[in-house]
Design a binder for these strands. Sequence first.
RNA 1: GCCGACAUAGCUUAGUUGGUGGAGCGGUGGACUGUUAAUCCACAGGUCGCAGGUUCGAGUCCUGCUGUCGGCGCCA
Length: 442
Amino acid sequence: MSKDTWINDILAGQYDGQDIELKGWIHRSRGSNKIRFIVIRDSTGKIQCVAKRAVLGDDFFDELKGSLIESSVILRGKVEATDREHGHEIQITSGEIVGAVNPDRPFPITESAMSEADGGETEFLLDNRHLYLRTSRMTTMLKIRSSVFGAIHSYFRNRDFIEYQAPNFVAGAVEGGSTLFEVPYFGRKAYLTQSWQLYAEAAMPALERLYTMAPSFRAEKSRTRRHLTEFWHAEMEIAWASNNEVMKHGEGVVRHIASTLLDERSDELASIGRDLELIARYADTPYPIIRYDEAIEILQSKGVDVEWGQDLDYSKEKILTADFEVPHFLTHYPRIAKPFYHRPDPEDPKYVLCHDLLAPEGYGEIIGGGERTWSEKEILERIDEEGTPREPYEFYIDTRRYGGVPHGGFGLGVDRVCTWLSGADHIREVIPFPRDSRRVTP
RNA sequence: GCCGACAUAGCUUAGUUGGUGGAGCGGUGGACUGUUAAUCCACAGGUCGCAGGUUCGAGUCCUGCUGUCGGCGCCA
């Protein structure tokens, strides 16, 4: 079996006046005992089909009349351009029910289930996520997400980056150890990776420009609209690069994602109420860069209680991002606020050569990156200074022992970018099966 | 880890100072030949999250538990 007729092509007028065979699912069904209006959904759209008892005969008409929402069907008939609401209709002449829905268990996602959700997510919809995926809002989000993933791949591949895979079982942490997922590993302990970075640095002298998109895992009991325990992490690492060059790629990839969405998903973005002018601005306007010290001054001038040396938490990020209409970089954090792999600034070692990219509209951090500590002497100092044991990082230190070079990279939260660019209220809305501290099912 | 809410039919919910739980959607049966969340009539569907307590009497008041949601911290 195959399918060669798609609803969006019918709606575009490709089949006007022709007999076609349509495969899909019943979205809505209404009408009388003599005529039924059956709206069929497929992955590309919805179209109204007209079933008449006089044409179909009693058997198939009654079968169709009794078919519940989300039954799968094959319908054959003639495409007719009309000036009614849908623009095109199919006058059904024959067909068959492929997968009938049992009336004892009707499709549970009803209008009422959707009405209160309004883009957000009720417990019921989260419990029935596997069915919620079929609704138009979720389908739209998944299409946008696909384009975001495609844009990230094309950005790096078009610039001769090599896609490179790191293990997901690891022995040590990248970030603080408290957020590691521990898994039993044949009598030993292993952890789920928090980042591809350390393994990417090992391959940096071999590939020089590399990237990945892979899940990262963080056992944070975060209950916010921008955290998942399993999230998709786009990371890159580049040899012979400074913090500034890494930032150029960060800006480049985010702008490329925005322009790709404008090309590929304007209709979808508009259908969920996203202002396309905003997306165009994110694609076209340069992203400003401010230093951590300037950010502190801005915050203090606004009367925010913040001291130099503190990391900037979300409440402060939000105040800062309110001043910007496009994403903006924060650079040169105090070294005491950042982990050992960030390289101290040779011009003032109180700071490290790092950057965060903050999305506007209150969405906050989407990229964290910077230049790496790359000499053996410096990396050992930084590890010891932090009180981190050296042993799990021997392979990482070896990268410096054998021809270390200046290099850097960043990690981008793909789900966060999807949330921001789609204008979603919650990161859960943009991933099919979200994982957080309270939910691993379905 | 911390703080705050919520839990009534398959879904969304109403439920007064405590007195035998209603509706809309969905489902079933019926009417209806152009409907747009179709309409109209009828029917079925409830251990009011769980366990205690107060009371003549608890969906309603109290305590504990469980689950979920929202926010903070941390981060992408």
